[in-house]
């Protein structure tokens, strides 16, 4: 804090860092995640309403359940699904933000 004009880390390095960490977490570390039911699923089982859950409409999708259809190796199947999901979320959320920003805010549009 003493020297205020510390050289700033360029944004692209921060962005790269977040992207690499996210891809590693989804692609590699996710294999080691707990397979236990999550809090809601566990409580639903204990209190007796878990059987009310109905089949998911997209349950036959190629990435359903965080696995890649046609890839037998569990590590690869889950890792690939994680990487694809991370990239899809990055593109969709990033694209949405671009669209929101592109709308004119300075002129008559501001209601």
């Amino acid at each position: 804090m003493s020297t205020t004009t510390k050289k700033r880390v360029p944004f692209r390095w921060v962005a790269l860092g977040i992207a690499v960490v996210a891809l590693l977490l989804a692609g590699v570390v996710s294999y080691y995640a707990s397979a236990n039911p999550d809090g809601l699923e566990y409580v639903a089982g204990k209190t007796g309403f878990l059987d009310r859950a109905s089949e998911h409409g997209a349950a036959d999708g190629p990435l359903a359940g965080y696995g890649t259809k046609g890839v037998d190796d569990a590590r690869l199947s889950g890792g690939l699904a994680g990487v694809i999901g991370t990239v899809v979320v990055l593109v969709v959320a990033g694209g949405l933000v671009l669209l929101v920003r592109r709308r004119p805010t300075d002129s008559s549009d501001e209601a």
Binding site: F11, A15, I18, A19, V21, A22, L23, L25, A26, V29, S30, A33, S34, A35, N36, P37, D38, G39, E41, Y42, Y66, G82, G85, T86, V87, V89, L90, V91, V92, A93, G94, G95, V97, L98, R101
Partner: peptide
């Protein structure tokens, strides 16, 4: 914030895959 938003969403997605054990028999993310 604009260049960061997509990355934050991607990070949240990735981290949501990492269920951590909580007590016996359940987990959270």
């Amino acid at each position: 914030t604009a260049p960061l938003a997509g990355l934050v969403a991607a990070f949240v997605f990735a981290t949501q895959m990492l269920n951590f054990p909580v007590g016996a028999g359940t987990s959270g993310h």
